[in-house]
Write a protein that binds this DNA or RNA. Structure first.
Lengths: 227, 227
DNA sequence: CGGGTGCTTGAAGACTATCAATCGTTGTGG
DNA sequence: CCACAACGATTGATAGTCTTCAAGCACCCG
C-alpha cells in the first residue's frame, strides 16, 4: 500500500512532487520562495487566495478570530506541509509566521487551471483536502470532549510525531499559540506541562524552559488514550 | 457565479445530480434506497466504507467516541445531504439514524472507480469534501472558543438555515445529541434554551416542548455575532 | 544593567458539569 | 380506559475544572 503523504504529517523537507503534485507538473507552476519574519502575516482571512504555500523552514499558524479577540488556531504548519488551499476563492483563515519562515509559493490560479485538465492533480488536491478534514475531525473531538491534560498530552504527541528529531521535541510556538490551538489559556497549558514534568513524563532540557522538551511517549499516551 | 450546492447546507430534497454528481453518471451508480429505524446504526467507525449516502428523509448523526463514552457529534445530516464520503477506505465516524430515516445508497467503489476517468466527478468529490472541511473549521472555533450561549445560538441559526420551513424550526434530535454536538451537557443546553425563551428570542410552540421552536433570527444572531 | 517579554505559580472567581428531583408526555398493560 | 412505568426535558443545588487576576521569575536585548 502506498504511504500517505499528507500536508500535516510529513517528515521534512519535501518537494512538491513528493507531496503528490505530479513532478512533470512543476514547470507549469511559477515556483518562488519567500521568507517571512516571525509574527508577520502571510495572508488574512477572507482575502482572495492568490497562492498556495509549502513550508520550507519555520512554522506557520493558521487561525480564526472572534470580534472580541478570542482566537482559535486550527493548525500549525511545519516544514513539508502544504497550506493555503481553498476550493473557494478566499482564504478562510489568517496565516502568520510563528518563527522566521521560508515558504515556496505557487500561483493558485495556475494550479486550479491545470487541475481542470489534469485528473491526477485534482485527485491530489482531494487527498490533501481530505487530510486537512481528518485533522479537523480529530481536533473537534479534542476541543469538544477532552480535558486540559488530555489536550496537552495529545498536542505533545502530535508535535512529537510531526517534528521530533531524536526524541527531543523543540516546540517552535509560544504558550499562547498552544493555548489557542487547544482551546485553553496559557496558564492552564503551563500548569498541565508542569504537572507532566512533576510526574516525570516530560522534561525541559534547556535553562530557558520554553522550547525544548523531552518526552516519554509511553507514559504520555496514557494521558490521551486515543478514544 | 455558480451557487454552491453543498452536502451540509442544501434546501431539500435534491437529486444526486443536483448535488453536482453528473446526471449522466447516474446509470453507473447502483442507486438503491434503504430505511433505518430511529437509533439504528448506518455504519461504524473504522468499518470499511462500502457505500456513500444521501438523506432522502429523516436525520442522521455522525460521531466519534472516547473509550469512556464521551461523544463528539461532528455533524447532523438532513434531507439532501450527502455523507459517508471518505478518501481512505474506512469510515472515520459512526453514523446513526436520529429519527426514522430513508437513505439513497451508492456503492462507493463504483464512484471512486468512475472518478478515475472522470475529472468532473473528482472535482465534485473535492467540492463536497471542501464543504465538510469548512463546516469542521467553523465548528472548531465554536468548540474551542465560544460560550455555551453562543454555541446554542449558533446551533439554532445553523439548523434554522438548514431545515426551517416558515420560520418554524422542528429539531429532530434530542437534547443529548445537541449537547454532544456543541461540546456541552444536556442541562447546559436546556438552560441556554430556557434563557433564550425568557428573553423572548425563541418560543416553544407545542405542549411537548421538545421539538418545535420559533426563532427570532435578528435577536438570536446577537448571541452569536459570527466573529 | 534595566526594561520587556514570555513562562510559571498562586489565589480567587466564573462558567459549566454533576448530582438530584420534578414535570410532562408517551406508551403499555391490567 | 386509566394507572403507571419509562423517557426526555427542565430546574435547582452543589461541585469542579478551567479562567481570570496577579505576582514573581528567567532570559534576552539594547
Amino acid at each position: 500500500m502506498l504511504m500517505h503523504l499528507t500536508p500535516t504529517s510529513l517528515p521534512r523537507p519535501h518537494s512538491l512532487s513528493e507531496l503528490g503534485l505530479a513532478a512533470d507538473f512543476d514547470p507549469l507552476i511559477g515556483l518562488s520562495e519567500f521568507t517571512y519574519r516571525r509574527g508577520s502575516e502571510i495572508y488574512g482571512e477572507k482575502e482572495p487566495a492568490e497562492y498556495i504555500y509549502q513550508v520550507k523552514s519555520g512554522t506557520v499558524r493558521s487561525y480564526k478570530l472572534l470580534s472580541d479577540g478570542r482566537r482559535q488556531i486550527n493548525a500549525f504548519h511545519v516544514p513539508g506541509d502544504v497550506f493555503g488551499l481553498t476550493y473557494g476563492g478566499n482564504h478562510r483563515f489568517t496565516a502568520e509566521a510563528v518563527a522566521d519562515t521560508t515558504l515556496r509559493l505557487t500561483k493558485r490560479e495556475s494550479l486550479t487551471a491545470a487541475a481542470e485538465n489534469d485528473g491526477t492533480l485534482t485527485r491530489d488536491l482531494l487527498r490533501m483536502t481530505t487530510t486537512n478534514l481528518r485533522h479537523a475531525e480529530d481536533h473537534m473531538l479534542l476541543l469538544g470532549r477532552k480535558t486540559s491534560m488530555e489536550r496537552v498530552a495529545a498536542f505533545l504527541i502530535e508535535m512529537d510525531r510531526r517534528l521530533t528529531a531524536a526524541g527531543i521535541l523543540a516546540l517552535p510556538m509560544p504558550r499562547r499559540d498552544i493555548a489557542d490551538y487547544l482551546g485553553l489559556t496559557i496558564e492552564t497549558v503551563s500548569r498541565s506541562l508542569s504537572y507532566l514534568r512533576e510526574l516525570g513524563v516530560i522534561r525541559f532540557i534547556d535553562n530557558n524552559q520554553r522550547h525544548i522538551v523531552l518526552v516519554d511517549k509511553q507514559q504520555l499516551a496514557v494521558f490521551d488514550r486515543q478514544n
